[in-house]
Structure formats: structure tokens, C-alpha cells
Simulated assay, not measured.
Amino acid sequence: MRFDVSSSALLTRLQSISKVIAAKNSLPILDSFLFLLEGNKLTITASDVETRLVTWVEVMNVEGSGLFAISAKIMLEPLKELPEQPLTFDINDANLEVFIHFQNGEYNFIGQKGDTYPQQKPLKESAVSLAIESQQLLSGVNRSLFATADDELRPVMNGVYFDIQPEYLTFVASDGHKLVRLKNLSIHSEGRSAFILPKKPANLLKTLLPRTDEKITLLFDDNNAYLRSTQFEMVCRLIEGRYPNYNSVIPTENENKVIIDRLSFLNALKRVSVFSSPASSLVKIQLSENQIIVSAQDIDFSTSAEEKIVCQYTGSEFSIGFKATYLIEILSNINSGEVVLELADPSRAGVIVPTENEEDEDLLMLLMPMMLND
């Protein structure tokens, strides 16, 4: 086999899928990229068994065709340091000895047989299909992923739940302390279905998805999901199990509603939380007419802080405790200039929503309170 390829085009494709390769693999071949040469197309695959990424690059002056694997480290490390130039791959079909010729030299090593690389099982005929714009998928994953759990006892909480209704798609994530529910009203489907996308492929999507309005094809059955764009394909094993009824934990009657500038609140929390106990990260939120007092203290080190922020609030005086790190995460994942903080009492979850949702979106975030010391 022989072909020419642009060094920068090849490196870009390799880097885009290399993040799926695990540090320690159960199968040694998974430390490698799988290459399939067919005509002027070089298809490249990387996998960790659970998740499989495929991309492709155009090649020239092709002689022959075939399947072979090359160590990811051998491919990536030298290419990172090479300036843009054509590379010539010359592969001996008999023993898979590989020569890579370039302007100032050559690399020589032995490849591996590609037929030992694990193959992907096809989706079932009952697989559900959904077309979704890249930006919509990116927005849903980006703003919900931070709320997923790392819970070995409840694996269903360790991913982003896609709740597909005929009129909209809801992205949900929760770790039991915080919850994100993002409805996209512009995504429609023929019926009801759902799946749980694990955290690793969700994180990979954040770097893979093009920042355009390109349509992504999403297919899934009970076990696997398949996503395809013009640049890549992803196949990943889904988390099996039933996701909890997330709507039942969202309080609907919250008498105390506060409208506050998001950045003022966020920055005050970041400053005040420095003085909270490292063990609990507890901050106290005190509401009074048109004013919020954010305070924290660490009794062990005799440190404390307090800041006052102007807000729109006309209810009775009220205090509630929250974990500062969670509240900061939530406010950082809302884009609106102002947010509405909806509270019922100090023992019930607080609901945080933007004053203005983005077009065709309905975003709600929920945070469980903490017990105040006083």
C-alpha cells in the first residue's frame, strides 16, 4: 500500500479522535489507530470498547488498499512537531513494515494487523432516528454535563438523559444535589423515546461537534447510540436502566421569588466562598426587601465574609444555605443577564431560571439546600 497525505490534515483528524483512547486498555490493539485505505479515502478509527470514534481524510497517489493499525503514540508525537508538508506512507503488505517519508527524513516501524481490532455491532432494526442541529446538541450537552454524577451505585445518574417527546427534546442531568432540565422546543420527533448518554462520550462531543448549524444524525437502540456528522462518526454504549422521574422533584409553588443580576451574584459568591469552611463550602443567603446578603464563615480559622447585593424582592425576610461550589456552577451555565431565584422554605430545593430564555429553549436548574449552623 502507498499513499500521500497532508501532515496537518492527518494530525487534525488523529487529534480529534485520540481522546477516546484510554490510558490503560484491556486489549493492546486499542492503543492504536485503525486505518482503512479504500480509493482516495483513508478512514481512521479509535476506540476504548465502550466508545468508538471514526473520521476520514482524503489521500492522493494511492496504490493498493487494505487494513492496518499503528500505535497512537508513534503517530501523534512526531506529527505534532512537523510543519505542514506532504507525507508519503509506504506499507509492506506482507509484514506491515511502515515507512513514512517526508521532506527532511523518514520514519520506519512495524504496524499491526487490523483484522484483530474489535468490530462494532450494528444497531437493531428497531433503532430510533433523530436529526438535530450541531449547535442544539452542543448547547444541551454543554449546559447539563456539569450536573451529572459519579455514582457507582446508581449508574443511570452518570450521564445526560435525552427525553424525546413529539413536541420537544429535554436534556436532563442530576447528581442528587443539583439538577438541570433544558427543553429544546424546536426539536420534534415521531414518538416518545429516551436514552442516557454516558459522561465520556458526552465530553468528547464538546470537542468534536462543529460550531455550525450542520445537521447531526442520531440513531439509537436499547444498547448503543450512533452519531454522524460530515467530519466524524461516534458509536457509544448507552447506560442501561430507568432514569428517575425528574419532574417530580421540581417544586412548583415557590412563594419567594428574587430577580437578581447574574454576574453580580456570581462574583459575590466567588469572593465570599473563599471564607467558607473547605469541608462544606456553605454560604448563607439572607433575603430582605430588595436586598440579598451573601455570607460565609469558617469557625475553625475564625474567618468570615459578607456582601450585600441589590435585587428585586418584596417578600418576607428569609434565610437559606447552599453549597457555594454548586451554586457557582449553576450560575456559570446560565447565559441570561438576570436570573430568578425561586424559593419555598429553607428545607426545600431552590429553583434558578433565566429571566430570558434563548430562542426555543426552556432552562431550569435546581439546587438542594444545606442546613444552616445558626
Rank of each mutant, 00 (worst) to 15 (best):
T212W: 12
E253W: 08
Y243R: 03
F220P: 00
T252L: 05
A225M: 08
D222H: 09
S248H: 04
P244T: 02
D175E: 01
E167I: 09
H188G: 03
V249K: 02
R181I: 10
L218M: 15
L185W: 10
R237I: 06
E167K: 14
K206T: 07
I239H: 04
H177C: 06
K200L: 10
L169C: 12
E233G: 09
A225N: 00
I196K: 04
D221V: 10
V235G: 07
A173G: 08
T252Q: 11
L197K: 01
F195K: 02
Y168R: 14
L169S: 06
N203Y: 01
E255W: 03
R192D: 11
L227S: 00
I250N: 11
S186M: 10
A173V: 01
L209F: 00
S229C: 11
S193M: 07
V235Y: 04
D213K: 15
L179Q: 04
D175F: 00
G191K: 14
L204N: 03
S193I: 04
L185Q: 11
S189F: 06
Y226I: 08
K215D: 09
S174D: 08
N245E: 12
I250H: 10
D213N: 15
K206C: 04
T230I: 14
T252A: 06
V249S: 04
T212Q: 09
T170C: 15
I216Y: 06
F171M: 07
I216V: 15
R192F: 15
G241T: 12
P244W: 05
I216P: 02
E214Y: 12
S186D: 13
V235H: 12
D213Y: 12
N224L: 14
R211A: 14
I216K: 06
K200N: 11
P210M: 04
D175V: 00
N203F: 00
N203W: 00
E253G: 06
R237Q: 15
A173P: 03
N203T: 06
L227M: 11
E167Q: 15
E190I: 11
N245L: 13
E167R: 13
G191V: 10
L204M: 08
E167L: 12
T217I: 13
G176E: 02
K178P: 00
K215I: 12
K199S: 07
C236N: 11
N223I: 13
P210Q: 02
I239D: 05
E255M: 08
R228F: 02
D213V: 09
V172R: 00
L219S: 13
R237A: 05
L169W: 02
F232S: 00
L182N: 03
N224T: 09
L238W: 02
S193G: 13
L185C: 08
T212M: 08
N184C: 14
D175S: 02
H177P: 01
E190P: 10
E255V: 10
D175A: 02
L219W: 05
K200S: 12
L197V: 05
Y246D: 12
A173C: 12
R237Y: 03
G191R: 11
E240T: 13
K178V: 10
R211V: 14
I250D: 08
S174L: 09
T217S: 15
I187H: 01
I216F: 10
D222P: 03
L169T: 08
C236D: 07
R181M: 14
L218G: 00
